[in-house]
Amino acid sequence: MLIEAINIVLLGMLALTALAAVRLHDLFAVTIMFGIYSLLAAVVFVVLDAVDVAFTEAAVGVGISTVLMLATIGLVGRHEQRPAHRPLLPLLVVAVTGAALVYGTLDMPFFADPAAPVHQHVVPYYLGKSPEQTGIPNVVTSILASYRGYDTLGELAVIFTAGVGVLALLGLRRRKRPAKEHPTP
């Protein structure tokens, strides 16, 4: 019960942070809000027993993502133009989509239900066989690197490709300064 209470408080804080990020127009503040959001998400992951994921989220979401977004804001400017008209159509689209998704959750298994279908299929096999087949106590590592090695190879290829893409778009060498700056309209 305690875990559920902590969980509910953390999720409420997440919702507040996300709403604050929507309302702010200074991109620096939005980025810091996103950093806080990631840190709260990492705490939620610890509460939900996903320590490996929490570790990654704390390092990536709070550290690397924030630094990257700040670097981008340094290059493109920190102030967002305020929208000229009230965003009624986006609100309507979001409300309809959200209502449809809430309707979809009514058929979902309850939170933390041990009988949920997701826990029945391959996972008991991994949990039961991992010690004798791989000799590794951390099941997340044994699934990541051994049982689902193909997946991880594919993910690594995606990261590699994204890195190559950034290199192709921005490059590592220093640019020669163009003779005149682009005019800002």
Binding site: I64, L68, A71, T72, L156, G163, V166, L167, L170, R174
Partner: peptide
Amino acid sequence: TVSAVTVTIFLAFAGR
């Protein structure tokens, strides 16, 4: 690969 890609991305943005 992950560490090299992350450093590369940082250098590409911050060194721009």
